[in-house]
Design a binder for these strands. Structure first.
Length: 194
DNA sequence: CAGCAGATTGACT
DNA sequence: GTCAATCTGCTGC
C-alpha cells in the first residue's frame, strides 16, 4: 500500500524517522523499477535543530523544498559529489525532514547492479543508496505520491524493541544538538533476509 | 571574490 | 588511519 499524504503531513521528523523503518522506497527511473526496504534514518527537526539546513529559519535555493508541504523529496548534493535523499514531512512552512541513510535492496537487482556494481545485499550509506535507486538532485521537490518515487507499506513490522537509536552521523558542528538520539535503525538481527 | 566546511565515500599508506 | 573528489553556501577581505 502506497503511503498517503496524511502519513507525511501528520508526523514530525522524529515520528516519521521511526515509522519509515521497514517501509519500502520504490523508484521508476530510467525505465527500471527498483525498490529497497528502509533500514536506517535520521530526523532533522526544523528551525531549532542546529544540525538542520533549516536551522534558524534559514532558506536558500538548496533547502527551499524543506518548507514545502510534507510528502516531497529533498535531494541535495553533499561534499560536492553525493546525492542525499530526504523525505520532507510535517506541514507547509515547517521544515522537518528525514534523511534515508540505508536500505536493503528488494527489487530490480539487475538495474541496481548496473547503477552500482557493489550493491548486492545492502547499501550502506546515504550517498550510495541514491545511486542504487537512481535518485539524484533532478528529483528534488518530486512528489512522493507521484510516479517516479514513492514509499510503500508492505506489512513488514518493526517493533520498538528492535530499533536502535543514537546520535546522528557527521553533525559534530551542531554543538549540543549533535548528541540528540535522532538516528534510528533496525537492529541487524531483525533485518529481513537479503 | 578567496577560503573554508560540510547530513560522504572509496582508494591508498 | 589519511586524503582527494568537487558543489553550495557562509564568512571575511
Amino acid at each position: 500500500m502506497i503511503l498517503r499524504r496524511s502519513f507525511y503531513l501528520e508526523q514530525d521528523a522524529c515520528e516519521a524517522a521511526r515509522s519509515l523503518l521497514g517501509k519500502v522506497i520504490v523508484t521508476r527511473i530510467g525505465g527500471s523499477v527498483t525498490a529497497g526496504l528502509i533500514t536506517e534514518t535520521e530526523a532533522y527537526m526544523g528551525i531549532d535543530d542546529r544540525a538542520s539546513h533549516a536551522y534558524g529559519g534559514k532558506r536558500t535555493n538548496r533547502n527551499e523544498v524543506m518548507y514545502a508541504r510534507g510528502g516531497v523529496a529533498y535531494v541535495y548534493i553533499c561534499y560536492g559529489i553525493h546525492h542525499l535523499f530526504n523525505v520532507v514531512v510535517h506541514d507547509t512552512e515547517v521544515p522537518h525532514a528525514v534523511l534515508i541513510r540505508a536500505i536493503r535492496p528488494l527489487e530490480g537487482m539487475e538495474a541496481m547492479l548496473l547503477r552500482r556494481p557493489s550493491a548486492r545485499d545492502s547499501t550502506g550509506g546515504p550517498g550510495t543508496l541514491t545511486q542504487t535507486l537512481g535518485i539524484s538532485v533532478q528529483h528534488n521537490g518530486e512528489e512522493l505520491t507521484g510516479k517516479l518515487i514513492w514509499i510503500e507499506d508492505r506489512g513488514f513490522v518493526v517493533r520498538d524493541r528492535h530499533i536502535l537509536t543514537g546520535p546522528r552521523i557527521g553533525v559534530a558542528y551542531a554543538k549540543e544538538d549533535a548528541l540528540l538520539p535522532y538516528r534510528y535503525r533496525i537492529a541487524p538481527s531483525h533485518l529481513p533476509l537479503p
